[in-house]
Amino acid sequence: MKEQPLDLVNLVIPAKTDFVGIARLAVSGIANRMGFSYDDIEDLKLAVSEACTNAVDAQYTDGEGDIKVCCNIFSNRLEIEVMDQCLYDDDLENPAIKALREQDLGLYLIESLMDQVDVQEEGGVVVKLTKFIKENGVKEHAGSPASYPT
């Protein structure tokens, strides 16, 4: 059985560069509340911004349409899906997939910042970003100096 998220936050923004910052802020707030480190929050913001900007650039040259950002909150990770719903001619390659290939640096950046990245075509393009919460510091039960052999 597929694991269900603890919470789900959906955000729909206009496909315009002016609104990409809203997605960044929402993801930042969610990640902060989940206990991600400052560096991981910055990585999440940059990856989401890159995915949203790609959707704006590749799909919506006229500024029409929406981008959906779905944040699936799990106990150990945050899964973010950035989806456009642009319809394209089936005889032509999907422009967002083509743009991802052409902008290898952008996709490379996203992949280097996230733990997992998956790109799918589902009535548009879905970029799924996964970041796991990392344990910081020494665990509480790691053993105290009194437990060390002498």
Results as ranks from 00 to 15, higher is better:
66 D>K: 00
67 I>A: 02
68 K>A: 08
69 V>Y: 00
70 C>L: 04
71 C>M: 11
72 N>A: 15
72 N>T: 11
73 I>N: 02
73 I>Y: 03
73 I>L: 06
74 F>W: 03
75 S>P: 01
76 N>P: 01
77 R>D: 15
78 L>G: 14
78 L>H: 08
79 E>S: 12
80 I>W: 05
80 I>D: 06
80 I>F: 06
83 M>Y: 08
83 M>C: 14
83 M>W: 10
84 D>V: 06
84 D>A: 06
84 D>K: 09
85 Q>R: 07
87 L>Y: 14
88 Y>V: 10
88 Y>K: 04
88 Y>R: 06
90 D>A: 04
93 E>D: 08
94 N>V: 01
95 P>Y: 15
96 A>R: 06
96 A>Y: 10
96 A>E: 14
98 K>E: 14
98 K>V: 11
99 A>I: 06
99 A>W: 13
100 L>N: 11
103 Q>S: 12
104 D>Q: 13
105 L>R: 10
105 L>E: 10
105 L>F: 15
106 G>P: 05
107 L>Y: 14
107 L>M: 11
107 L>W: 12
107 L>P: 15
108 Y>P: 09
108 Y>E: 12
108 Y>N: 11
109 L>D: 08
110 I>N: 13
111 E>N: 13
111 E>S: 15
111 E>G: 13
112 S>F: 10
112 S>D: 11
113 L>M: 04
113 L>V: 00
116 Q>D: 10
116 Q>T: 03
117 V>F: 09
117 V>M: 11
118 D>T: 15
118 D>Q: 13
119 V>D: 11
120 Q>S: 05
121 E>R: 01
122 E>K: 01
122 E>Q: 02
122 E>G: 00
122 E>A: 01
123 G>L: 04
123 G>I: 02
125 V>A: 07
125 V>Y: 05
125 V>S: 07
125 V>R: 03
126 V>H: 09
126 V>T: 12
126 V>Y: 05
126 V>C: 11
127 V>P: 05
129 L>W: 03
130 T>W: 04
130 T>E: 05
130 T>V: 15
131 K>F: 08
